[in-house]
Design a protein around this nucleic acid. Structure first.
Length: 584
RNA sequence: GGUCCCGUAGUGCAGCCAGGAGUGCAUGCCGCCCUGUCAAGGCGGAGGUCGCGGGUUCAAAUCCCGUCGGGACCGCCA
């Protein structure tokens, strides 16, 4: 090693020792005659005192982010010059030798944790961005994955790698495609998840499989979405939901303990999907605050209010303090609701003296006026915000409003971790064309008491599917899979997949399932979101080494790039496959 | 596919609504001074295609249209 000590580890007990350090110049405070150089590397920062006579030659140009080697003696700082804000603040290193290992060009932005830098510049010089906070996000992510591997290993899971160059997997997103030079006109798809492979591994008798796997989905970006992202993919044979819950909780409990030293409750709460929707208007409810939905369908049954009359569902969220919101604020929420495709957000405000005001008030009958506050559970000073329409739609709107309003009124406590399982997720949902589509994926088993009749009326059939949700974020998703051929056939039938199409797309899996597939099920926690949550950041980009911008570009490498005519020819992109066999 | 915000010196921003010459602010950079600072300080200096294209106007960073790039959201995506 070039150095004998790590800069951030030096303490008063090292006083008198001669040490050799290597790192970067974080700051140079030059007083003429003597200069103070903050030497920074992964372990921390230490102050190096450099006399003028050493600042000759290359060392004389010492600037921020020069990479240097320093030989010097550790000594206690002169009385009164200690810096209690630094772990190394009691001492300093009196340099006898300064060597520039490599110089730094002037920086495109300050390498300083508290400087605000634009997203694009940070990504363009991501390596400098990483220096700013000592790659904190990546180090937290590492501690999480290290714990995950330990827990998986302790429980007998086998780490197996599955192909990235493969064929389409049934997750429902758009595929990334890769041309195949050896078979012009044919393309690999990058896997949206290792779903099919892990099921094949169960047929193969692995019994317990896991992988920290990259997944690829060609959909639009969000702050918590990248086109290539990472899942802890796991699958177990001979299990039911309880076994998967136990493992899932063990993983999250261990990670939260190791990374944050926080004990999560055991077991996690469980809420059936329909209860989540009824109470929170979301399939990933944030349980850190109340503001639960109130159903008013029966209260408004037979109402004359035009926007409520005849609607299958009327509900409300009661917001404390909203009774004093200004007209401008209320108009803003109306606009917010319209932005989500609703007609608006009707409201009634309860004044301090219990009297009501609000746009829909005039339309209410006397009985509705007098009973509303009690029915909705609203107190003086509260605002009651309504949505009406198809049950799911109206609840979605109220759920989104619940989150936004909680943020608005500061009702979301910091430092809380509200984990829960959302259970009994629906099996199918309307596909918009009068048919049905699988909510999770088409290998998810129906609830055990619906195996015989799930295809008679696919609406509201619960699946053996479950999510882990924390603070309003979906952190994991999984299910017990179908292992009987006839059930699988009937599921394909419901979602309108003909036997020919099924064979064409998943024939290899169906074939494998002819050979004694074990009952199995699994889970897939999202590593990026998990790490972001642990790091206390809103954006998963902070826990990804080289993230992409929202148009899928990487400003650092310049990817993606156009290809040359020759590359295009070699890749066989324009070739027509002999005998077109692809289903449309 | 849609909505919204942003684009001005290397970086972060003000100026734009209400048009009138880019001495704008902070930081960084360059030079000089300075022996106890710690996001050091003082003095001086350099640094700009106001993203790009078009339009309106006597005159555009500013108003209008288009386009590109970044960000957030809806749709999409578990």
């Amino acid at each position: 090693m070039i150095r004998t000590h790590e800069a951030g580890t030096l303490r008063a007990e090292h006083a008198g020792q001669t040490v050799t350090l290597a790192g970067w110049v974080a700051h140079r405070r030059d007083h003429g005659g003597v200069a103070f150089v903050d030497l920074r590397e992964a372990s921390g920062v230490v102050q190096v005192v450099v006399r003028d006579e050493l600042l000759t030659g290359a060392a004389g140009d010492l600037r921020a982010e020069f990479c240097v080697k320093v030989v010097g003696e550790v000594r206690l700082r002169p009385a009164g010059n200690e810096n209690p804000d630094l772990p190394t603040g009691a001492i300093e290193v009196d340099a006898s030798e300064v060597e520039v290992l490599s110089a730094s060009a002037p920086l495109p932005f300050p390498v300083d944790a508290h400087a605000e830098v634009g997203e694009e510049a940070r990504l363009r010089w991501r390596y400098l961005d990483l220096r700013r906070d000592n790659a904190r996000g990546l180090r937290i992510r590492h501690r999480a994955t290290r714990t995950i591997r330990r827990v998986m290993d302790e429980r007998g899971f086998v780490d197996v790698e599955t192909p990235y160059l493969t064929r389409s997997t049934p997750e429902g997103a758009r595929d990334f495609l890769v041309p195949v030079r050896l078979q012009p006109g044919h393309w690999y798809a990058l896997p949206q998840s290792p779903q099919l492979f892990k099921q094949l591994l169960m047929v193969g008798g692995l019994e317990r499989y896991y992988q920290i796997a990259r997944c690829f989905r060609d959909e639009d970006f969000r702050a918590d979405r990248q086109p290539d992202f990472t899942q802890l993919d796991l699958e177990m044979s001979f299990v039911d939901e309880e076994d998967v819950y136990e493992v899932g909780e063990a993983v999250f409990r261990a990670v939260w303990k190791d990374v944050l030293d926080i004990e999560l409750p055991q077991p996690f709460r469980r809420l059936p999907f329909t209860e989540c929707m009824d109470r929170f208007g979301s399939d990933k409810p944030d349980l850190r605050f109340g503001l639960e939905l109130v159903e008013l369908s029966s209260f408004f049954a037979g109402t004359e209010v035009r926007i409520f009359a005849g609607q299958p569902y009327v509900g409300a969220v009661v917001v404390p303090g909203a009774g004093s919101w200004t007209r401008k604020q209320l108009d803003g929420w109306n606009e917010w609701a319209r932005g989500r495709g609703a007609k608006g957000l009707a409201y009634v405000l309860v004044e301090g003296d219990g009297s009501l005001r609000g746009g829909v008030l005039n339309a209410l009958s006397d009985g509705e006026r007098s009973g509303l506050a009690v029915a909705a559970g609203a107190a003086p000073g509260d605002g009651v915000f309504f949505a009406a329409g198809p049950r799911r739609e109206a609840q979605d709107l109220l759920g989104a409003f619940r989150n936004a309003a909680a943020r608005e009124i500061g009702a979301i406590p910091e430092g809380r971790w509200e984990f829960l399982w959302v259970t009994d997720m629906p099996m199918f949902e309307p596909d918009g064309d009068g048919g049905w589509t699988a909510v999770h994926h088409p290998f998810t088993a129906p609830a055990q008491d619906r195996v015989d009749d799930f295809d008679v009326d696919p609406a509201d059939v619960p699946a053996r599917a479950y999510d882990i949700v924390c603070n309003g974020m979906e952190l994991a998703s999984g299910s017990i899979r179908i292992h009987q051929a006839d059930v699988q056939r009937r599921v394909f039938d419901v979602i309108g997949l003909t036997p020919e199409e099924a064979r064409s797309k998943f024939g290899f899996l169906l074939e494998a399932f002819q050979y004694g597939p074990p009952p199995h099920g699994g889970l897939a926690p999202g590593i990026d979101r998990m790490a972001a949550l642990l790091a206390g950041t809103e954006s998963i980009r902070d826990v990804i080494a080289f993230p992409k911008t929202s148009s899928g570009g990487d400003p650092l490498t310049g990817a993606p790039t156009p290809i040359t005519a020759q590359q295009r020819k070699d890749a066989g992109i324009d070739a027509t496959p002999a005998g077109l066999t692809e289903p449309s």
